[in-house]
């Protein structure tokens, strides 16, 4: 069965809000969702909390979430908070 993929851009200026929207979009996503972080230079605590929620909801709904274009500083923050392992990082 083909797996459909939903792509969303995360707005660097309002990352937490964008991630909240992604959370909502999970319901309509197919098996996979890709979030484009190319414009995200830095994540704040609100964004990290949103990502935590997103990871939990994606797990419940069996949706794989990939983060594309994540810069190394954001990636390290995700590693420190043990969130990195809950996402994939497609090239």
């Amino acid at each position: 069965m083909p797996i459909s993929e939903t792509c969303l851009n995360i707005d660097g200026a309002r990352a937490a809000q964008s991630l909240q929207e992604a959370l909502t979009a999970l319901d309509t996503a197919g098996g996979e969702m890709v979030l484009d972080f190319s414009s995200v230079r830095r994540v704040d605590a609100g964004a990290l909390r949103a990502m935590e929620k997103l990871a939990a909801a994606a797990g419940d709904k069996a949706v794989k979430v990939g983060l594309r274009g994540v810069n190394i500083d954001v990636y390290k923050a995700l590693k420190l908070i043990k969130l990195a392992s809950r996402f994939s990082f497609p090239a």
């Binding site: 994540v43 605590a45 990290l48 500083d73 995700l78 908070i81």
Partner: peptide, 12 residues
């Protein structure tokens, strides 16, 4: 949890 998140954010 708050401190851990703050510390992660702070690395940037």
């Amino acid at each position: 949890d708050q401190a851990r998140t703050a510390a992660a954010v702070f690395t940037q």
